[in-house]
């Protein structure tokens, strides 16, 4: 069974190119275009990996990650991964749990 992956990215172009790339590497890719809808879909569960942009409308990537950890952390099977073009690595670490 193909690993299931949620890509949360507000930039339409990147959403297209990244999901094509990830699909070609053998993932079943679903997408969300803002933080809020991304969180709602991820919280329903069923994803092996959530790929988050950091600067997202309505709810930023760190918040989505933190909220996900809080609601599903104790029995989590999915991991979060942050991608961004200009956020310092230090801040990424500070929000991991």
């Amino acid at each position: 069974m193909m690993p299931k992956l949620l890509l949360v990215e507000d930039e339409a172009g990147l959403r297209l190119t990244l999901s094509d790339r990830l699909a070609s590497e053998g993932y079943a890719v679903e997408t969300a275009s803002d933080g809020q809808s991304g969180f709602e879909r991820a919280a329903r569960g069923g994803y092996d990996l959530v790929v988050l942009d950091v600067m997202l409308p309505r709810m930023n990537g760190f918040d989505v990650c933190r909220e996900l950890r809080r609601s599903i952390c104790p029995h989590a099977s999915s991991s979060c991964c942050g991608i961004s073009s200009n956020i310092a690595a230090r801040r990424c670490r500070a929000t991991s749990c």
Binding site: G13, L14, T17, N86
Partner: peptide
């Protein structure tokens, strides 16, 4: 950077 990232990833694909 954002448009550049889109162009680069499209080019790589």
């Amino acid at each position: 950077r954002t448009p550049l990232a889109v162009i680069r990833s499209a080019g790589e694909n």
